[in-house]
């Protein structure tokens, strides 16, 4: 890797005399610049999609992990018995990770925002709350509700967060699709650069033969092409990335409602991720051109 970076560095600083031995490559050069720019622009969006859906999945999964609550409203003298009963039922329900009855202090803390801190919890018919966390696949909410209503009539299952479960799965799927798109964009760019490099190499057959005849090593000739295409890809991708980032920054802000589409974008250090696109494009172009050049050179004695 260090050797490779060293080579890349030497390539970028370059030797202007060595550069001149290959004539300017017109259309192929523009094709590389343009396709690298377009691919980088798309890559920014794929990256934004992956990161945003990742954040969304995390947030929703976080809400899910707060789990469900069972609320028990019963006359004071039955409260303890029903609580124990519900805890016993929950203990044997598949998919329930843990169940815990909140104590008075916690209940007071929960209600404080609505009723103020001085609420006389002990003297009011405040329901007992039981916090339920789920294991991976969750529990069968309908079954649990039926069982609770049969055995502990005062207990109600409150599972208002559970509707998010399929959304988390969808967000995670979207994130994988985003990463897959990034891979496809990288592959398509490698293919484009290879084609452009091959066109340039074919157009310069005479130049390559002449260079070989005067004693140029393969690597010298290859480097002249590789340098050109690597720099083009780097410049094109830098422009495309910049344009993509500006476009993402100009998307409507995520604050109102927090819907999915309005959340598309980068957050905080997430803005650093797209900066990896231009160097990545340069590396792809480097290897694609190098392979094409060495392949072409093998046919010249």
């Amino acid at each position: 890797m260090r050797a490779f970076l060293g080579r890349l560095g030497a390539l970028l600083t370059g030797d202007p005399r060595a550069d001149r031995v290959v004539p300017p490559s017109g259309a192929a050069a523009w094709l590389t610049l343009l396709s690298a720019g377009a691919m980088a622009f798309l890559a920014v969006f794929a990256l934004a999609l992956s990161l945003a859906t990742g954040r969304l999945a995390e947030r929703w999964a976080g809400a899910l992990s707060q789990g469900a609550t069972v609320r028990i409203s019963a006359p004071a003298e039955q409260m303890a018995a029903q609580t124990r009963l519900v805890l016993d039922i929950l203990a044997v329900t598949p998919g329930v990770g843990s169940a815990r009855a909140l104590d008075t202090a916690e209940t007071r803390a929960l209600l404080a925002p609505w009723f103020g801190p001085d609420l006389p919890v002990d003297s009011l018919p405040i329901p007992q709350l039981i916090e339920v966390t789920e294991t991976g696949d969750g529990f069968d909410a309908e079954g649990l509700k039926l069982r609770l209503s049969a055995e502990a009539p005062g207990a109600t299952l409150d599972d208002h967060q559970r509707w998010r479960r399929p959304l988390v799965a969808a967000a995670e799927r979207l994130r994988s699709l985003g990463f897959l798109s990034l891979g496809l964009i990288g592959g398509a760019m490698a293919a484009m650069v290879t084609l452009a490099a091959q066109a340039a190499l074919a157009a310069n057959g005479q130049v390559i033969r002449t260079l070989r005849l005067v004693g140029a090593r393969d690597i010298y000739i290859a480097r002249a092409f590789v340098r050109r295409f690597t720099l083009r890809a780097l410049a094109g991708a830098a422009a495309g990335t910049l344009a993509g980032m500006i476009a993402v920054a100009l998307l409507p802000a995520a604050d109102e409602a927090g819907g999915f589409l309005t959340g598309l974008g980068f957050a905080g250090t997430g803005w650093l991720w797209p900066l990896a696109i231009p160097p990545f494009a340069a590396i792809v172009a480097f290897w694609a051109t190098r392979a094409a050049a060495l392949r072409t050179l093998r046919e010249v004695q």
């Binding site: 005399r17 060595a18 001149r20 031995v21 004539p23 300017p24 130049v207 002449t210 260079l211 005067v214 004693g215 140029a216 090593r217 010298y220």
Partner: peptide, 17 residues
Amino acid sequence: FLDHLPLEENVALPLTV
């Protein structure tokens, strides 16, 4: 020769490469 380079650079090409 390399048709895009002037004569003197063509003559110096073996050194350049």
